[in-house]
Structures are given as C-alpha cells and as structure tokens.
Design a protein around this nucleic acid. Structure first.
Length: 712
DNA sequence: CGGCATCAGCAT
DNA sequence: TGCTGATGCCGC
C-alpha cells in the first residue's frame, strides 16, 4: 500500500490533484503541509488537503511530490477544512484561500530573470532583429530583467512564447533561482487559567448575557445585533471585557478599511489587546502585528473581511459590523461572501454576531423567527424631518435657501445628498407620461444628444424615437439633477461660498485635502453621492438635503428599497444629535416606506412594509435566490457559457425558476461586462446540490469565471 | 494561472 | 512563410 496525497494549488482551478508521496517524505507529510509538486511543466507550491492509502495508481498517471516546505508548521486541519468549505461555496479553489491565509507571504519564491548571452550582445549590435524582439533585446542591453517587467513595459500579451523563441535562437538566457525569506513560527496560544466565563458585568449586561450564555455552553451559533452604532459599540465593549481572559481569538470585521476609523473608541480602550490588520498596512507593520497575534499577546483582531482568513485558533467570537454592506461580497480578489465565511468559521464552536442599524431585510426576518435577534432599540436621535415634493430649482430659491442661509451664518455645515455625479437627462411624453425604458433592466434610459438613449446600468443603447410610441406626441427632455448641476446652482445662489463635491473619481490627494478643509470648517457646503457617506464623520452637519432619493428605487434589484433606506439613514446619521438638526427631503415619492422611514431612521416600520412587499413578489426570505455572475473578457465567450449553463440547469433542475440572464457592468472593472441571472428556489434543500453542480461545471470549463451569492 | 497548440490575419 | 495576437484546453 502506497501513500498518496490530494493537493490544492493557489490557482483558479477548482479541482485538487493526486500525488504519490515518496518513501522518505512519508513520515513528515500532514494535512495542511505545504508541498512543491510538478504541475504541467511547472513546479508549484500547493497545500495538502488529504492523505490517502491506495493499492495502486488510478487510471491517470500520478507524479511524485518533490518536497515538503517545512520551515513552519502545517496549517491546522480545522483551518484547511474551513478553506475547503468556503471554496466549495464560492466556486473557488481551497489553495487560493490557503494562500491568502499566509500573512507573511511565501517563504520561498521563484525569481526568473532574463539576460543577454554573448551571442545576443553581438547580434543586438548587428541589429539582426525587428519588432518586439528588437525592443526586448534593447532593453536587456545593460541589465537583466524579469519577464513580467518586459511584459508590462512593452505591453506584450504573450511574453513567454517570444522569450522561448529568443532563447532557442541562443541570444538570451532565462535563469531561475529561489529566494528564501525567514518565516515566522506560530506558537500555541498560552494556556490561560480562566476556562469558564466570569459573572457577567458591564452596562449592557442583558444582551451580553444572552450571547455569552451560548458560548459558555460551548455551542456555536449566530445572533443579529440591531441598534445604533453607539449602542452596538457598548455591547462590543462589554463582550470584550467579559472575554478578556478567555483563551481564544476575537475577530472584529468591517466592510472596508475606511470604516476602521469609526472603531477608534474601542481601539483606544483596548490598546494593549487589539491589533488592526489590513492589506494597506506597510509590510513591516503587518508582520509585526502578525507576530503579536500568533504569539497570543493580542487576541482581538480588527480589519476588513480578510481577517476571516487568518489561520488563528480557536476563534470564539466573530463580529461582522454593518452586515448589510455590499462590500462583504463585492470585492476584488477571489470572491467570497464574508457573511458565509464567518458562519463557516464559527462552526468550530464560535459565535457570529452580525450587527447593523439597518440589517438586510431577510436577515432580520430569519433572526427574529429563530429568536436570535438582539434588539437594542432604534435610533434615539433628535432632529426634524421635512419633505418637499416641489421642483428643486424653486425650492432652492425659496424655503430651502433661507434654511441654508441660517446655517451658514451660524457657521454650520450643510450636506446635499445626490444620486449621481454630473448631469443626466431622460425623455418623457408630456401627453401620456411614457418614459423610454431599458428592455433588459426596466429602468429609465438616459438621454444624450450625441449617443441617443442609453441604459446606465447595462449599457443597452438605442435610437431616439421620433414620437411617443403610445400616443404619438413629441417627446420632451427631463433633467435629473446630478452633483454638477447642483454645484452650479449653489454657486450662483451662495456667491462667495466654497463648495466641495465628494464623489467617485477623486484621487487620494484631492480627497484628503477636501476632507481636512471640511473638518476644519473652511468648507460649509458639501455635495456628495453614496461615495461620500462613509468618508464624512457622523454628527458633523446641522442640515442635510436629500435630493430625489426615489431614483435609486429604480435599479433592477429586489434589494433596491432597502438600499435606498440605508443611504437615507446614513445621511441622517451625519446630522448632529441636536434640536436644530434638520433633514430636508426633496422627492416625488414622500410616502414610499424606504423614503419616509429612511429619513426618520425608523427601521422597524420600514421592515414591516418591505416584508409585505417581499411576500407579495415571492422574494427572499419567502423564496431563495441564487445570484450568478459570469465574467469574461469577451461577451461572446461568457454568452456562450451562460447559454450552456442555463441549458444544463433547465435540464437537471426543472423545478428551479430561472430569472434573466441580462448583461451588466462589473462592479470593480466597470469596463468589464458580466452576465447576471438569478435562480429561484423554494427553500434550502437543493442549494448543496446546485453548488456541487456549479463546481462540477467549473471543472469542465476552467476558463469560466463564475461567482454565486445566495439570498435566502 | 501559465504552458502549449492552434488558428486567422497580415506582411513579406 | 513567419510574425503576432487571440482563443481554448489542460494540469494528477
């Protein structure tokens, strides 16, 4: 009987590979070992998922492991299982997640360098080559370079075929050497004397008792902590106090690095115990932080979703703050849903606390049903709300203007929340109210003289109709007032005032300057889109004006109302907690629950009406939606794949309803198109089967970049 | 992902 | 015929 092992590589290849373990490595190989193995013509570092004993080789030919990298201990088996489960759920490879878990990087790296040979020196002088080859040789004249550098510098797609042909004609040589780095050694967590929890103390004792009660019984589980940010912080503070001497790690997760600053009170209070970790930390600081973590000196880790992939054990508590935030699943790099990752990690015996002032609607519903909802009560903020249904131009000259004038005189800041940057126009029929809409997304098409009608969501383009297709009248242009329009109007009305526009497209420097001027009170009028909300401090405004929030109800997504509610509440959060604080909403739909309750921060009222709507339309939580995204460089390949995929789903899962597909823009690379569709399921039952099906499909089509998000 | 084969378009 | 970029398949 020979020893074999299953290896996963950090490549976007879902399947693992079987290797034979040579006799001399047999005793040292473990689950979680890092090994070097031949794959194709390459030698690659991968991770051992499984060790097997087989009588003989399977059908295909099996290669041997080259060596074990044992400069640090193997990754704990529990963590390997976590990576596997997460990879299965994310249609990704365990190896990719395990690689992300190596905080201080690989200790061995292959460095490839290209240099001219003597023959090459001569031939370059003689100018024997043309085109790209000539350019490569010229660059190599005085020094050797890496293939990647050449690729970027000369914008060559297929650098290796060029280099290989140059090497074959003997003018260059390609050398390879391994770079070694010192690895940090993980030590076991120092044993603590305290093994059971102490009597619960602290201000927020009731919810804390509820949470810790479960932990004390060694059970895993989850809670939804609903309440204002400050109330939630108090609970966290009390949890940390009670867990202070508990021998386990605590992960505090925020949706983006920017949000870490909101946690300053906790960071300050726990200076000696907490560590902040994220990718933008300089290399040296990150290593230092990691040392403090693995030595057990600091057991509270605060950071973005990547902290969920830190191989620390045991983890007793994971807090996912602002759990409704899209950034938890829409981020660059291997895609995974942080909420799911947190849930899986907690299966080893930890607790997950999802936390928010405006939880995702079905999440709230499920937790209420399961009685895992911890309700700290809504916002208790003092401010007044006014709704206007009129035209913004007139309002800006009348009531709204005098209000703004007052604030400017008393030195306060005023925030204007707009839906988009720039301008945009649309067409409508003055006779019957017809608006040309996108045939895919059902949202109003924007109108530009030069390019006609275009969908800002999927890019669908069409010509301007001569007349209204319904009643034959001539179409008119309507205008949506974006940030640019507003800036122009405000600068006319408030001559002499500096106006800041905080929106996508600012570079880091500009943004910093603007923010520091705003914070210093030098700029009092601030216009911002969604982008501005997480960058401005809470409570720094005395007046906020929300302009046409109903536009965001238009996006073709069943979560549109909730997202509108969230951004309205976030604007309200920017107001100071004072009698004179005022929120003005200019909208055509003052009675829509998302707008009415969003402005007042009445989450539960919004929830009650939204849940009715969900029930009516059979959206989650009353059905389960799987959102599938297919990404590719060319629409043709992804189109072909999506057709194939949908055909197979229809065949294998006839009871599943397919919604879509439609074309949309990638959130991260806006130029990249993706194909999106939804599958509607009655309940959880078939989810695992569908996941297996998708993973299988990926093995058959390794080029396909598919991601899936489950809304239940 | 990266290596490798294959193909089409284009310049010789 | 050879160069070059694009596309697709595969790895144990």
């Amino acid at each position: 009987m020979a020893v074999y092992c299953e290896v996963s590589f950090p490549l976007p290849v879902v399947q693992s590979f079987l290797y034979k373990v040579p006799a001399e490595l047999k005793d040292r190989i473990k689950i979680g070992s890092r090994v070097v193995a031949p794959l194709g013509s390459r030698r690659l570092a991968g991770y051992v998922l499984e060790i097997k004993f087989l009588e003989k080789d399977p059908q295909y030919k099996v290669k041997e492991i080259i060596k074990i990298i044992d400069s640090r201990p193997p990754i704990p088996e529990g963590f390997v299982r976590f990576a596997q489960e997460l990879a299965f759920n994310s249609l990704s490879s365990p190896g990719l997640f395990l690689e992300m878990a190596e905080v201080d990087g690989q200790e061995e790296k292959e460095l490839i360098k290209v240099a001219l040979t003597e023959k090459g020196q001569v031939e370059t002088e003689q100018k024997n080559f043309k085109g790209k080859k000539k350019e490569i040789l010229n660059l190599l004249k005085d020094k050797s370079l890496t293939p990647n550098f050449l690729k970027r510098k000369l914008k060559i797609k297929n650098i290796n075929s060029l280099l290989n042909s140059l090497r074959d004609s003997g003018v260059i040589e390609i050398s390879q050497k391994t770079i070694r780095r010192k690895a940090s050694l993980a030590r076991p967590l120092p044993q603590s004397k305290q093994l059971t929890l102490p009597g619960i103390t602290g201000f927020r004792s009731e919810p804390v008792r509820q949470i810790l009660g479960k932990l004390d019984q060694g059970k895993s589980g989850q809670f939804l902590l609903f309440g204002s940010f400050n109330d939630r912080l108090e609970v966290v503070q009390s949890l940390l106090e009670n867990l202070r001497f508990f021998p386990s790690y605590i992960l505090l997760v925020v949706p983006e690095i920017l949000q870490i600053q909101k946690w300053e009170p906790i960071i300050e209070a726990w200076k000696k115990e907490i560590v902040v970790m994220h990718s933008q930390l300089p290399e040296r600081l990150r290593r230092e932080a990691w040392q403090q973590v693995i030595s057990g000196q600091r057991k509270i880790i605060l950071g973005p979703r990547s902290v969920l992939l830190l191989p620390v054990q045991p983890v007793s508590l994971i807090l996912l703050d602002e759990e409704q935030d899209d950034l938890y699943y829409q981020t660059e790099g291997p895609s995974f849903d942080a909420r799911e990752a947190a849930r899986i990690r907690a299966e080893e015996g930890g607790l997950v606390i999802f936390s928010s002032s405006y939880p995702e609607v079905s999440h709230y519903w499920h937790n209420r049903e399961r009685q895992t909802l911890i309700n700290l009560g809504g916002e208790k903020k003092v401010y007044s709300t006014v709704f206007f249904t009129g035209e913004i131009d007139q309002l800006l000259e009348g009531e709204v203007k005098s209000e703004i004038d007052n604030r400017l005189i008393s030195g306060d800041r005023v925030f204007f929340f707009v839906q988009r940057k720039g301008y945009s126009s649309y067409l409508y029929c003055p006779g019957c109210g017809f608006i040309p809409r996108c045939q895919n997304c059902q949202i109003a098409l924007t109108f530009k003289k030069e390019e006609g009608l275009r969908c800002r969501y999927c890019g669908y383009n069409t010509e301007v109709p001569e007349a209204c297709p319904v009643c034959g009248k001539k179409l008119k242009t309507g205008k949506i007032r974006g940030s640019q329009y507003l800036e122009e109007r405000l600068s006319q009305l408030f001559a002499g005032q500096i106006i800041a526009r905080l929106e996508e497209g600012l570079d880091g420097q500009q943004e910093k300057k603007l923010l520091s001027k705003i914070n210093a009170g030098k700029i009092q009028l601030i216009i911002g889109t969604e982008y501005a909300l997480s960058r401005l401090k809470m409570g720094m405004f005395s007046l906020a004006v929300i302009i046409n929030p109903e536009l965001s109800l238009n996006v073709p997504d069943f979560r549109a109302a909730h997202q509108t509610y969230v951004s309205m509440s976030k604007v309200a959060d920017l107001l100071a907690n004072e009698e004179k604080s005022k929120l003005m909403v200019i909208t055509a739909m003052p009675d829509h629950p998302a707008i009415r309750e969003g402005a007042r921060m009445e989450y539960q009222k919004f929830f009650e009406s939204e849940i009715e709507y969900r029930k009516l339309l059979n959206y989650p939580p009353f059905s389960l939606l799987i959102e599938i995204n297919l990404r590719s460089n060319s629409i043709r390949t992804s189109g072909r794949l999506s057709r194939l995929l949908l055909e197979k789903i229809a065949e294998k899962f006839p009871q599943v309803e397919i919604i879509g597909p439609k074309l949309s823009r990638s959130v991260w690379r806006k130029s990249q198109k993706e194909i999106k569709f939804y599958l509607r399921l009655k309940n959880q039952e078939m989810v695992r089967e569908l996941r297996a099906f998708f993973n299988n499909f990926r093995i058959g089509h390794p080029g396909a970049r598919i991601s899936m998000i489950i809304w239940e």
